[in-house]
């Protein structure tokens, strides 16, 4: 659990982060969204003390982060930045082994961990262990960056615009991978982005920042239905908020009992995708079918539309 208490950062006369308090639950993904200059990156960098707060404090599982030297703290916290920052003079395996080496792990344990991570990120160890970063594609570099951050099994992973440099298709894949990996390793992720779609897609909680202040911190659906501030409403998008709301609910969650002769959809599909399917096919209900072929229920257009209202 990460507890941010009254965190403030001033540079000269300018207040970049202004009295921000929030609590990040364990094993969750929290997205911090804001325009550039909103202080979101500074807030993130105060969690691993790359930036020292002017006032306020951060607790990691109840322990003040200032109780130990900053560089020791950072070895326990994964950190991923835009553009990866891979060490260009070190191989992929050496890059991933950075923190385990700093922690003095045994060579055999490091090797096993590097191999495991390469496989998790679908990078063939034989091909990629000894490759240098510039020999990889942008998407591969990004994956190595995340693997490096996770190498020492941190409980917390901080990500600063991690997918900012990727093209849309690779970005969607990287976001999916992150969700998988978070489920698999169960770490607490705090992710900074300026992209509200990304925040809604990844975050179970979303914090909206502007001008250094935290405007609202809540579940995505609450941000849409009860924005605390006109700026939050603008950020979440007034024009398509109903569609965004639909994209937050899966077919499995919304399925109701009853027969349907409409198209089959997976329970993991979002209502937005189901509605699009129904519009396209002209049917007025869809069957929600599990992977094993059993029918979970149906979704009528009316039931979907009802979910798009606050």
């Amino acid at each position: 659990m990460i507890t941010v208490e009254k965190l403030t950062k001033c540079y000269g006369g300018a207040t970049v982060v202004d009295d921000v308090s929030l609590t990040v639950e364990r094993n969750s993904i929290t997205a911090i969204v804001g325009t550039s200059g909103s202080g979101k990156s500074t807030l993130l960098r105060m969690i691993n003390r790359l930036v020292e707060p002017t006032s306020g404090r951060v607790l990691l599982d109840g322990r003040d982060t200032r109780d130990e030297p900053a560089y020791l703290l950072r070895r326990r916290i994964g950190y991923v930045i835009q553009g990866n920052g891979l060490f260009p003079h070190r191989t992929v395996a050496e890059n991933i082994a950075t923190v385990p080496r700093l922690l003095g792990w045994e060579a055999r344990r490091i090797e096993a961990r590097v191999r495991e991570l390469l496989e998790v990120f679908s990078l063939d160890p034989v091909t990629y262990s000894d490759a240098l970063p510039h020999q990889l594609s942008g998407g591969q570099q990004q994956r190595v960056g995340v693997a490096r951050a996770l190498a020492a099994e941190p409980l917390v992973l901080l990500m600063d615009e991690p997918f900012g440099a990727l093209d849309p298709i690779i970005r969607a894949k990287a976001q999916e991978d992150l969700l998988d990996i978070q489920r698999r390793f169960g770490m607490t992720v705090v992710l900074v982005t300026h992209d509200m779609d990304e925040a809604f897609r990844l975050g179970s909680q979303v914090a909206v920042m502007s001008g250094g202040r935290l405007l609202q911190y809540d579940r995505p659906a609450v941000l849409l239905t009860r924005p605390a501030d006109p700026f939050v409403a603008r950020m979440t998008g007034l024009a398509d908020r109903a569609m965004r709301l639909l994209s937050l609910v899966t077919a499995g969650e919304a399925a109701l009992p009853g027969p349907s002769d409409g198209p089959a959809v997976a329970p993991t599909a979002s209502l937005r995708e189901v509605l699009s399917d129904l519009l396209w096919s002209g049917a007025d209900s869809a069957r929600v079918v599990e992977a094993d072929g059993s029918v979970r229920g149906r979704l009528t257009v009316a039931a979907i539309l009802a979910r798009g209202r606050p």
Partner: peptide
């Protein structure tokens, strides 16, 4: 030295000397 690389090095927990 690329700033992102230096930022990553510090962020990984290298001391200034390392």
């Amino acid at each position: 030295c690329p700033p992102a690389v230096l930022e990553a090095a510090s962020g990984m927990g290298m001391s200034a000397r390392q």
